[in-house]
Write a protein that binds this DNA or RNA. Structure first.
Lengths: 249, 249
DNA sequence: CGACGTGTTGATTCCTGTCAATACTCGTGG
DNA sequence: CCACGAGTATTGACAGGAATCAACACGTCG
């Protein structure tokens, strides 16, 4: 076992073979631009539970999540914490032009990151518009997601919050499994505590509301984490959103 | 009185003389680029209380707020509403590449907007990087603000929420009046109801907490809207943020 | 086995929402 | 001039939902 396991670095694959090649910040890059990116990138892995970045830390890199799930959190002095972002594969971490982290970034599963040295990346952004264009698009999407979350945090009941979270995970899961199954089943990638930080609740309330949804037949649980949704419309209705589910974009 | 007062259009001034020239989405544009913008822009005014855009509406333009204050709100089917953005002069409205509005936009004071026809604006964005660069910067700032607000909505008490809102208005006000006065005084640009929509509270709770802060000497009221803060540190402490007030950027 | 992390459930408190009455300001019109 | 109504704001009584404090269950790992 090496002395510095948390700095684990792996030889990055060629961008051509990257699983997030077409969705990450590099999605629009052409061959020549990828060649430039190759020279400033390196891989770095983190174990589940590990803090990737502390708020206020010097940031000498920006990065894309390649595999795994990470969270962005903010805290008040007395320890109250609020998750402000959920980072999935292809999501971007860091802000070009800013040298200190504004949030804590934590790995909730094992995470692999594709890091770019910040200064060269910023230079590259100025010379090639494709990266900036893609980053703008991704940032606008994140802003929409953040605003959707503000509605949840400010106005939804505990039950609606849980149903909303389950809907979102289910929706994302359904997007992967191409077929439109009537019965949706998935694993929750978050602990009860992480869910509470996400939803602005206590973990006890999260637990109680999940039990209530189970009792009412909205969801079926196998173990603590595996969820089956017998009737997706029912769940969406419990989430309190517009019933049409009509999403933009 | 014309039949369509809400479509009031005014002859826009030259960009050189625009009060938000150096802060809006056009901030980085050069003379030639401004000339192009001039050809696709037009002014439009709205009265206080008027809805500027309905969520779901066709958007044939994007725009900058020139003067006045507007709000971005989202609503649940049963009428619960949450403000998700506060638009001040120089802020940008609309999303290039999207043709339907995602939020309600409402004028809280009389508002003047500098509108750009959407299609030509999108074309311009592709050809000149300066606009996209500035828009990226502004969007990242908004994302930071949204995340700050998520912490408030999810984890702060009613009293802390009010103190936070007052702090933000006071800070913005202080930024205008260059001198660093110890005693801060300002007018609240929002009704109690707008404040409640912003903070995820009821208007009764807003009223009660403002009264409590007044009773405790944290603030002094002249009338309903004019606020004096005898001790800014005290107010910041009540807001629950890190005491150093150390902000990034 | 015992410690630890994770999750569930119960009892109780209390903060905020709800419902309701009242006050204040500002126009309008008789 | 004053009555009236609409919009805005304050305050009280009360109820309810989520937080808090606490006990306990389950699985894993040393």
């Amino acid at each position: 076992m090496p002395m510095v396991p948390d700095l684990a670095a792996a030889a990055p694959p060629a961008c051509d073979e990257c699983p997030i090649r077409h969705r990450a910040v590099c999605a629009r890059c052409e061959a020549a631009e990828l060649t430039q990116l190759e020279t400033i990138k390196y891989y770095r892995s983190y174990e589940a539970g590990q803090t990737i970045i502390w708020s206020g830390d010097q940031m000498d890199f920006v990065a894309s999540v390649v595999t795994g799930i990470a969270t962005l959190t903010q805290t008040l002095e007395d320890g109250r914490t609020q998750m402000v972002g959920l980072l999935l594969p292809s999501d971007f971490v860091g802000r070009p032009g800013r040298d200190r982290a504004a949030y804590n970034v934590t790995a909730t599963t094992d995470v692999m990151m594709c890091c770019f040295r910040r200064k060269p990346f910023e230079t590259l952004m100025e010379t090639t518009p494709h990266i900036a264009q893609r980053l703008l698009q991704m940032t606008l999407d994140e802003l929409d997601a953040a605003r959707e979350w503000m509605l949840l945090l400010g106005r939804k009941t505990a039950r609606e919050k849980i149903a909303s979270l389950l809907s979102i995970v289910a929706r994302r899961d359904a997007a992967l499994k191409t077929e439109a199954a009537q019965v949706v089943a998935f694993d929750l990638p978050l602990t009860r505590e992480a869910m509470s930080d996400y939803l602005g609740l206590t973990l006890e309330t999260v637990s109680r509301q999940i039990s209530a949804l189970k009792r009412d037949g909205v969801i079926v649980l196998q173990g603590k984490r595996h969820v089956t949704v017998p009737n997706m419309d029912r769940l969406l209705h419990e989430a309190g959103d517009d019933s049409d589910g009509g999403y933009l974009m």
